[in-house]
Design a binder for these strands. Structure first.
Lengths: 217, 217
DNA sequence: CACGAAGCGGACCGCTCGGTCATGTTGCGC
DNA sequence: GCGCAACATGACCGAGCGGTCCGCTTCGTG
């Protein structure tokens, strides 16, 4: 159902160009965001513009292919951290990995959490990431490492917000995000007894579409 | 220096259209961000597209006129709060006012802190806002209300980050930003003795241009 | 080696945008 | 009420975008 993206081609030049295209697109999207034009991506990959649309039926499909990879990596990282002993430390490591990805990839920032994205597989991958975050947060809560009213959605929203907070500094100080990550972790750490002034979020409002991108998992 | 924007016109229809235009642009920019087209703004104002360019030499100039108003309001609010007794509470009120503005105005979020903006007057207004933030923060520091290594730039960056954190929720929960504002305030409040892992920012890197929009304070 | 199909490339299309201009209109001093 | 300068207008322009198409090239196979 993924259109022209289906299956691996038998021809060697096709698979090579597909690789070049994915690498070029990943780099361009990371550096300059979703606004980069297909023409520029094709040029960087050393192929013609038409070749892009032979491999990916639209720009969104190409973007989604790359975002799915990143989202999957993060979810896997989080899943592995579920086996760690120290739940608080595991949550910290997960948040660090998330912010690092946000900082490294501009298109990732613009895509995740934005309700404008209607790609079903991406929505599902974000949902999975939220579930992993929720699991990690639940363990940290039980351990007393974070406030009792912090949810996985809070964590996902915060890592996105941390990147945005540090963004103006990143050109001059590429590691400045660590400062705001620490600030956020201090904030969610169980310290003051005061409750937060708004009920905790239970799920991300992800523009329901229900077009079913195939069987899940 | 402001091109066609200079001076007040003597004709009544011109000043009326200018008002209509500013109101329409403010509303559209707030709702939909900087991407709204000049044509849509003109339509909403009930004038022709050419009229927009008679009053503002470019789209950036129109956007800047509105952003300058918002930045000035916030700086004035902060300035007034410098006279308050409780410096910690004053800083909290300032941050609240800032986040409220961010939440209300999408173009404001996209403009402030983005190094892509080269408009000299806007840069200067942001600079002034940072100075006010620094003054408020310094007072709160002396009072012991915030950590000793928190700067005004931290505060400005944080309020922007808070809006971005809460953004995905704002459609369903318009007040959700209060949760993350509280979290951030908890983070910057002097609590844990631990130092933050990155040196505090001293100034925003605002894409120096040097075209001199008047003498700088 | 010959051949067909799959892949490739870039001119091309339709669209939207910011910005311009010639033409028609209107407020205002006299 | 007259005349003119300032103003309003929307057709128009060039640039850039995502996406299409068709003639040409290249790979794999019998």
């Amino acid at each position: 159902m993924a259109g022209t993206t289906s299956g691996a081609s038998s021809r060697s030049d096709a698979v090579r160009n597909r690789r070049l295209l994915l690498d070029a697109a990943a780099a361009m999207f990371a550096e300059r965001g979703v606004e980069v034009s297909i023409g520029e991506i094709a040029q960087r990959a050393g192929v013609g513009k038409g070749t892009v649309f032979r491999h990916f039926s639209s720009k969104d499909e190409l973007l989604a292919a790359i975002m799915l990879g990143l989202l999957g990596e993060l979810a896997d990282t989080g899943g592995a951290l579920l086996a760690a002993d120290d739940a608080g430390l595991a949550l910290r490591r997960f948040m660090t990995a998330c912010v690092e990805t946000f900082v490294r990839d501009r298109a990732f920032c613009e895509t995740v959490g934005r309700p404008s994205l209607q790609h079903a597989q991406v929505r599902q991958a974000i949902h999975r990431l939220c579930e992993v975050a929720e699991a990690l947060t639940a363990r940290a809560r039980q351990e007393g490492a974070v406030r009792p009213d912090i949810t996985g959605i809070d964590v996902v929203l915060l890592v996105s917000g941390i990147q945005h907070t540090a963004e103006p500094l990143l050109g001059a100080e590429p590691e400045a995000w660590r400062r705001y990550l620490e600030l956020a972790i201090d904030g969610i750490t169980a310290g003051t007894g005061r409750a937060l002034p708004h009920p905790p979020p239970r799920h991300l409002p992800l523009a329901e579409g229900g077009e079913g991108a195939g069987a899940e998992a």
